[in-house]
Computed example of a mutant assay.
Amino acid sequence: MHGYAQDKDAYAKRLRRIEGQVRGLAKMIDDDQYCIDVLTQIGATPKALQSVALGLMDEHLKHCLAEAMAEGGEAADEKVREASDAIARLVRS
């Protein structure tokens, strides 16, 4: 089971909301909305995705990584590398 399993519905709901935001952006373009208004809405989308990503990372650290650390060994080392790489990707984006 993944660390986010108990919050799966909330994550799915947030992602559907973001999906709606992106569809709204396309509609703004179709409707020839003012550039700055479109750009403002575009700026909100990465922040919403980042919020989901940070929540998932938190769940991963609390559940998956903590479980692996308790077991120890090479699997724990791999989970730490995996988490570190994921954090690095988030920071770069």
Rank of each mutant, 00 (worst) to 15 (best):
L61H: 00
D31E: 12
G73H: 06
H60W: 08
A5C: 09
I29H: 12
K47N: 11
P46L: 10
A76E: 03
A76V: 03
S51T: 13
S93T: 09
D30C: 04
D37I: 11
K8A: 14
R81C: 08
A10K: 07
G3P: 05
S84I: 03
E78I: 15
M69W: 06
R16Y: 06
K47S: 11
L54P: 00
V80Y: 01
R16W: 08
H63R: 09
Q6T: 13
E71W: 01
R89Y: 08
R17S: 13
R16T: 14
D32P: 03
G55V: 06
K8D: 08
I36G: 10
L54D: 12
M28Q: 13
R17P: 01
E19P: 13
A83F: 12
T45R: 00
A12N: 06
A5Q: 14
A26S: 12
D30Y: 13
E71V: 11
A10T: 10
V91H: 02
R14D: 14
E19K: 14
L49R: 05
A88I: 01
G72I: 10
K13Q: 12
E67Y: 07
A76T: 05
E74C: 05
Y4L: 04
S51V: 04
V38W: 04
A68N: 03
D37N: 15
R16G: 07
A44T: 07
G20Y: 07
Y4E: 02
S51D: 13
L90S: 03
A86S: 12
Q33P: 04
K13L: 09
D77N: 03
Y4F: 14
K47R: 15
G43A: 15
K79W: 03
A76C: 10
E82M: 09
S93N: 07
R17D: 09
E59Y: 01
D30K: 13
Y34W: 11
Y11H: 14
D31N: 12
Q6V: 14
R89W: 04
R23G: 11
Q21F: 05
A10Q: 10
A86F: 02
K13Y: 09
A12C: 11
V22P: 02
S84Y: 07
C64M: 05
Q6A: 15
D85K: 03
R92Y: 06
I29R: 06
S51P: 00
